[in-house]
Design a protein around this nucleic acid. Structure first.
Lengths: 240, 240
DNA sequence: GCTTGGACAACTGTATGCAATATCGACGGC
DNA sequence: GCCGTCGATATTGCATACAGTTGTCCAAGC
């Protein structure tokens, strides 16, 4: 253990951390830490159950423990990590039961949001259409580009919920969906599930353009249920 | 994310805040700070828009700024306060639009949860019945005891959602409902709304006992909508 | 009178030292 | 040989010092 850490001075020396630092440099060390750790969890870089040591993280990120602690508390509030008193923070574990809870909720919330969006008719259907087309292309090749589809799909769903006019709905769904289990969904899709999912997206755009709430709701419900079924068939999830 | 759910319990003894230090010593200063500040916000002791200064709070609570900061961050994550960079934290303001968003969501989530609970049939209908009766008594007098009804009602709704089997549903609804606007709902009820609300509770218990999901869902939906209507009629909410 | 610049004050953001606590291994008693 | 206890170590929890930022107030200039 060194007597003092010169990396603790912000900006004094940019080591390997510099890449992370300017990637999301919001000016706040706590925000950078939050974003970095969260990213590591969502991408699966950190395994479930793994301990997140404040000292390790602070050194890896080139900041002190204080902003790291703040980041960990935010992540704990979101449920991505669990906080054990005087013991530390560890990455949350996800089971197939969690998957069921999440998709059960999505089956209710997302179709409802879609119906609201269709009713209000303020959704940016042009951008949605564009997103659907890009997902189309990303999925059509021999080897679907999962890394490309995922953010497009996330934006697609988010845009629709935002068009529902209920800001809390956006937050709630995001808080439930933003877990490794779900955000890496497409990597576990078979080719048929993938094609069907893409087709749903196009149909949802049509329903929104037609201002048909019932249609939009139905398609979205099918969309969510089919995703659920596709994931259930997959056995790469820990059963408990 | 679980400790904020039961804070509506009346057990939190008020009085000088300093007394909390040795009274409810959970061992963690951060938790004490969190509970205390949260209580102040939910009871309306802190007005919307009011600045929460770290130094003031730390002195009032007899701890340093560090645990206060942690508490404020948790509250910010829950949406009870808003955090402005380098400026501080202020108590969130609630408008009639927020009320609409919240009850709009409740209209979807709580009836669904009730249907699930009726279907599974694991709800503790005896305790629910007891709660309904106690609310009955508290509401029947010439001057309804609002301070007594509120925690009973919160527990009633929470118990049902817990019986739905979807733990995330409990958390989600709690995160949306635990705001001053809603938690002090009954203080704005008229006598008729109050009687109707109490009647709904009894009917919900019956529906659960009959294991009738559709009935349970319907009554709960009526229950939520009637509450919404009662609050809409009230003009004590800031319009924006 | 109005605007503008600058110093000041208040407050948050970050770093770091110290105390408290849990874990794990070694040692001694049974 | 097994179990309980004690101590070393690692790690969190809290306090505090310091740095950075923002808003304010006042005075000088137009």
């Amino acid at each position: 253990m060194d007597s003092h850490l010169d990396a603790a001075t912000p900006g004094a020396s940019d080591g390997p951390v510099a890449a992370i630092a300017d990637a999301t440099d919001s000016g706040r060390a706590a925000d950078r830490a939050y974003t970095a750790i969260r990213h590591q969890i969502l991408t699966g870089e950190r395994d479930g159950g793994e301990w997140l040591r404040e000292t390790d993280l602070s050194m890896a990120l080139g900041v002190s423990r204080t902003p790291v602690r703040e980041a960990l508390r935010r992540l704990a509030a979101e449920g991505l990590v669990s906080h054990e008193r005087n013991r530390g923070v560890r990455v949350q574990n996800w089971s197939s039961h969690d998957l069921d809870e999440i998709f059960s909720l999505r089956t209710v919330l997302e179709p409802w949001g879609s119906a609201l969006a269709a009713e209000r008719g303020v959704a940016d259907t042009d951008e949605l259409d564009d997103l659907a087309n890009r997902m189309d292309r990303a999925a059509s090749g021999p080897t679907p580009d999962v890394e490309l589809i995922t953010p497009l799909n996330n934006r697609f769903h988010r845009l629709i919920l935002e068009a529902s006019g209920n800001s809390r709905l956006v937050t709630l769904v995001a808080s439930v969906v933003d877990v490794p289990l779900v955000s890496r969904t497409f990597s576990r899709y078979g080719p048929e599930s993938l094609r069907r999912s893409v087709a749903h997206h196009h149909e949802i755009v049509s329903a929104l353009r037609a201002h048909d709430p019932i249609w939009a709701e139905s398609v979205m419900r099918s969309h969510v249920r089919s995703a659920w079924a596709a994931l259930r068939a997959d056995d790469s999830i820990a059963q408990d």
